[in-house]
Design a protein around this nucleic acid. Structure first.
Lengths: 246, 246
DNA sequence: CGACTACTTGAAATATTTCAAAGTGAGTGG
DNA sequence: CCACTCACTTTGAAATATTTCAAGTAGTCG
C-alpha cells in the first residue's frame, strides 16, 4: 500500500495516481509501477467541481471518461418529454462517462451532488495505452462490465415493485459501497435529495419519505436530515429479499 | 456488401464471418479483410441451441462472449429468493455474455427462446486480438457501451410507471431492432412469453395481457398469438412519451 | 432574518396486483 | 390421427399499494 501524503493546502491538483488514496480501487489497480507513470501522464488530475456543476452534458462529444476523486455525482438523461431520469450515483473511485463510447456522444449528463473532484482520462490515450498494457485493457473491460452489472442490479431493483424492497436494497447497496472505501456502511450521508432517490428508484418523493419514516418506526434505520444510520442490517436484508410467492 | 451464399442443407456450421449475413451489424464491422481472417480463426461458429437450452449459467466461469447468429435468447438472474429476473432479450447479431468479464464468472444465465445458433468468441483470444487491432478494440468497447446504453434504456422504461408506456416502448424498441436487421418493424414475432415480457418490464402477466387487448381495442396493434402487427406507430410513440406533468 | 426549496404527513384517487376461473394452444401418447 | 393434458393466455372482481393533491414544517442560503 503506497504512502498517502496529506496535503497541507487541501489541494488535490498535484496528487499523482501513485499517491492517490483511491489507488487500490481505481484504474491504477491494473498496472505496474512504471506503467503507472505512463497512466499518470495521460490523466488530467483532480479537477474540482462545484455542487450542481456539470462535468459533461448529454449530446456533447465524447472525449474522456472520469474517475471520481472525491465527492458524489449523479448521471441522468432527459426523457422525450423533458423529465429527468437518473441512471446512477457515483462515489469516489468509480468511473463514469462510459456510456459515450458507443456513439461517440454522451447519452447522459453528469452533475455533482456536492463539491467534488474528478480525474479526466482522455479516452483515445487510454485506448492506445490499453493496447500496449494488457492488464490495463483487461481492467477497463472489467470496469465496463461492472457498470453493466450495476445497471442490471438497478433493473432488478426496479422490477421488484414494493417500495420497501427498493429502498432497503438501495440503502444496503450504498452501505456496501461505502464499506469498500473503508468507510462505515452503517452510518453515512445521503448526498442526493429524497427526490433524486425517488427518481432513481421509480417512486414518488412522498413514497420515499413515508418509507423512511416507516423504517424508522420499525427501528431499522435512523435518519437525521441527510445522515442515515442503519440499525438493523439483517432486517433491511430480509425486506430487500422478501419473497413474493411463499 | 459480401455475397451471402445460401446453404442448401440449412447448416450454419461452415459459414465464416466473411460470408455471414450479419456481417454488417456484428463484430466484423470493425475489421479489414485480412484481419477478418484472424477473427474467423478464433470464433467457434454456429453452435446450434435448442429451444429452452442454456448457453451459459450464472455462476459458471466466464470464458467467452457469444454472438447470436439466429434465433432469440434471454438472459436472466435468480434473485435471492429464487425468482427469475430477465435482464435482456437478444436478437441475431447481438452480443451477450459481457456481464461475466468483471468477476470472471457469469452473473446471468442465457437461455434460447426458440431454436437458435450462436458463435462463441473466446474472450482471451479476443483480448489478444484487440490489443493488436485497434479498430477491434474500439469496436468491442463500443459493444459494451451499447450494452450499458441498452440497460439504461430499460431502467428508464422501468422508472416510468404506467404499464402502457412500458409496453408501448417495448414494442417500439423491438420493432426498431428488427428494422436494423432489415426485417419489418411493423410485423414481427414475440418469441418470448407474455410472462417473460411481464417479468422483464416489472409487470404482472395479467397486466401485460390486458394492456395488449386495450391497445388492440384502440387499433394501435393487432396480435395473433405471438405475432404482433403495429398498426399505429405514432400512436404508440405518443403513449410511450406521455408527459406526466402537463 | 427572510425567501425558497426540500421534506414530511394526511386523505382521496387511481393503477396494478392478486386471486379465481375459463378459454386456447401445443405437444404427447394411445 | 384424435384425444388428452399441461402450460399459456385472457378476463373478471376484489384487494392493495402507490400516486396525486394539498398543506404544513423544517432547513438552507443569500
Amino acid at each position: 500500500m503506497p504512502k498517502t501524503p496529506t496535503c497541507p493546502h487541501g489541494s488535490t491538483m498535484t496528487v499523482t495516481c501513485s499517491d492517490c488514496s483511491l489507488n487500490p480501487i481505481c484504474l491504477p489497480i491494473a498496472v505496474s509501477k512504471d506503467e503507472l507513470i505512463q497512466l499518470d501522464e495521460i490523466i488530467k488530475r483532480g479537477r474540482p467541481i462545484k455542487k450542481g456543476e456539470h462535468i459533461f452534458n448529454a449530446g456533447e462529444g465524447f472525449r474522456s471518461v472520469y474517475a471520481v476523486r472525491s465527492g458524489t455525482l449523479k448521471t441522468y438523461t432527459l426523457t422525450e418529454n423533458g423529465e429527468e431520469q437518473i441512471t446512477g450515483f457515483y462515489l469516489a473511485g468509480e468511473i463514469l462517462g462510459m456510456d459515450g463510447i458507443n456513439t461517440n456522444h454522451h447519452s447522459n449528463s453528469a452533475k455533482a451532488l456536492e463539491a467534488s473532484a474528478v480525474c479526466e482520462i482522455p479516452f483515445e490515450r487510454l485506448e492506445e495505452l490499453s493496447a500496449k498494457i494488457p492488464s490495463l485493457q483487461r481492467h477497463f473491460f472489467q470496469l465496463m462490465s461492472r457498470e453493466i452489472q450495476a445497471d442490471q442490479q438497478l433493473i432488478m431493483l426496479l422490477s421488484k415493485k414494493p417500495a420497501d424492497e427498493r429502498i432497503a436494497s438501495f440503502l444496503l447497496n450504498l452501505g456496501s459501497r461505502h464499506e469498500n472505501r473503508g468507510l462505515s456502511g452503517e452510518r453515512y450521508r445521503l448526498n442526493m435529495s429524497r427526490s433524486d432517490i425517488g427518481n432513481y428508484l421509480g417512486l414518488a418523493v412522498e413514497t420515499v419519505s413515508r418509507t423512511f419514516t416507516r423504517f424508522q418506526q420499525k427501528s431499522l434505520i435512523k435518519t437525521e436530515g441527510k445522515e442515515v444510520e442503519v440499525l438493523d442490517k439483517e432486517g433491511l436484508r430480509t425486506i430487500s429479499n422478501k419473497a413474493r410467492t411463499p
